[in-house]
Simulated assay, not measured.
Amino acid sequence: MEIEKLRILGEASQYDLCNYVSLNQENFTSKNLPGIYHTRTPNGCQVPLFKVLMSNHCTNDCKYCINHCHNHFERIKFSPEELISVFLHYYQNHYAEGLFLSSGMPGDADLAMENMIEVARKLRLEYEYQGYIHLKIIPGASYDMIKRVMSLADRVSVNIESATSSGFEELTSTKDYHNDILRRMKWMGRLKKRHPQMAPSGQSTQLIVGANDETDLDILKRAEWLNKHLNINLSYLSPFEPLEKTPLENISKPADNRTPRLYQAQFLLNSYGFSPDELVLDDNGFLFLDDDPKLLWANSHSDMFPMEVNEASFKELLRIPGIGKISAKRIIEARRKGIKFTKLQDLKDLGVVVSRAEPFIQLNRAQQTTLPF
């Protein structure tokens, strides 16, 4: 029965992302180890997490979710002791290196939170587990519950799901966008500011792409707002998946490359100093899917290029296709040491993607030297 619970509640957790990738069913579960999810760290390493729902009982009517309250199937749950036992077995056998725990909401948000808190409390205090814990905040949870969660977890999150309140209302009638979601996110932000040791990895959130009529511009403006006001540097974007026995089962999936393009654009906003108004969009507020948003911007600003690499500021370098934050920093550091760039190979050695950058740069105001092949 425990293995069956793992299979069901592990699969049911798959739509809560903790990885900046498109949904990949094979990444969530396996026949031998249900509940294992392989996430990637910023440096590219894969880390196995035990990722599961505490319960699939839920009184919310989210139209995209298989656990919505109008769906009739067997509802099951883990007790805190059962879940701890399974997780410690996985952890001690090196199957998982951390815990990602979420839950449906069985009528009362604080009741659901209490069970997840008990798991984290016992792991920390009774079993002296000091590894990674990510706990989901149930929409509508009380301030005191959120504070308790943040004292135990490395990362916390509540899913915002939609970029606008009207879009949110298209997806559910049992949750309030401003009260249940945004207010809780602001509470977490304030607690983190007052107590930096709480949830040391901060908070994250998730938006669904393609479940309603929201445009890419809507999504990107919300992502920028979350970064500016709540210090959420990158929001997870979950491409909508039409699931059987949900009200949205006949809605089409978004184009495969829509979510990756949105991630690229979000990086431009949150890490490269772009504003939403600078992005190249179609008349309806959607990104062009055939080209990188940064390349489209550069091609539409021919007056700024070619840019002299030996003179450009850090912010200007970030506008050049093929130059990222790391390579831009390396260029600035090399220039401070008196190094002048005269060959494309010099830039390639610093991590610049010269095949993309070459049309947009010049070196010492001289003709660029091509790479030897």
Rank of each mutant, 00 (worst) to 15 (best):
I3H: 08
E4S: 12
E4M: 06
K5Q: 12
L6M: 14
L6C: 00
R7G: 00
Y20K: 14
S22R: 07
L23C: 02
N24G: 12
P34A: 14
P34Y: 05
H38T: 04
T39V: 15
V47Q: 12
L53K: 09
N56P: 10
Y64V: 02
Y64L: 10
H72N: 15
F73M: 03
R75A: 01
I76E: 00
K77F: 11
Y91N: 12
Y95T: 04
G104K: 02
M105A: 06
P106H: 09
D110R: 06
M116K: 09
R124Q: 06
Y129L: 09
L135W: 10
K136S: 10
P139Q: 05
I146Y: 01
V149R: 02
R155W: 00
I160H: 00
A163M: 03
T164K: 10
S166T: 13
D176E: 06
D176Q: 12
D180Q: 10
M185L: 15
K192V: 00
K193L: 11
R194V: 08
P196N: 11
Q197E: 14
P200H: 09
S204F: 04
T205K: 01
I208D: 05
G210W: 14
N212C: 11
T215M: 08
I219V: 13
I219Y: 03
K228R: 13
K228M: 01
N231H: 11
N233T: 01
L234W: 07
S238I: 01
F240Y: 13
E241F: 09
L243I: 01
K245Y: 11
K245W: 07
K245F: 11
T246R: 07
T246F: 06
D256Y: 08
N257P: 01
N257E: 14
R258T: 04
R261E: 12
L262P: 04
Y263M: 15
F267V: 15
N270H: 10
S271E: 15
Y272F: 15
G273S: 02
P276L: 06
P276Y: 05
L279T: 03
V280Q: 10
G285W: 07
F286H: 14
L287G: 02
L289K: 10
D292W: 01
K294W: 00
S300C: 06
H301P: 14
M304K: 02
F305R: 00
L318A: 06
R319W: 05
I320N: 06
I320A: 03
I323Q: 06
A328G: 12
K329Y: 00
R330M: 12
I331S: 07
I332A: 02
R335Q: 14
R336P: 04
F341E: 14
L344E: 12
Q345F: 07
V354E: 04
S355K: 14
E358M: 08
P359A: 03
P359Y: 04
F360K: 05
L363H: 06
R365F: 12
T369F: 14
